[in-house]
Amino acid sequence: MLAVANLLIPSLLGLMILVSGASVANTVEDLTFADDASRDRYQNLIDELRCPQCLNTNLAGSDAMIAANLRREVYRMVTLGETDEAIKSFMYERYGDFILYRPRLMPSTWALWLLPGVLLMIGIWVWWVMARLSSSDSDDEMQMSETDLAEVERLLGESHRANDT
């Protein structure tokens, strides 16, 4: 009896898994996920993948058939436990880098990823230089303007008197 139960229970479980596995492999998106992490991965992937046919929409936002089919593929792969990298590789092996909204880092995109940082460095350097230049004058200027200030007031005083006539 026990031996039969030992056989039966695992095979029943196995059958259940088989059945649920079959529904996961369904052609229509079930949109059920094992956990929140998988769901988040799915949402992020369909946000980052581009619809190949559309005029600039991600898979999440597109009504096109190809987008629906690709979403289904992403869903299938996420539920199979494929990594994000593997899923993205799958996509760009078939559709090229066009399908990735986040460009891969490779020699042809070094300029794209590194230039903004360089620009920022240049900007900070420009700010630094201008701040240095301006502040090194400031102390001298303030001294000068005190003497000039007196002169200006004297001149103003004269011109005020001139205007009153």
Binding site: Q53, R94, Y95, G96
Partner: peptide, 14 residues
């Protein structure tokens, strides 16, 4: 190719 899998493998988009 009812579910379009082969088309995807070919990189077909329309």
């Amino acid at each position: 190719d009812a579910d379009g899998r082969l088309a995807i493998d070919l990189g077909v988009y329309g």
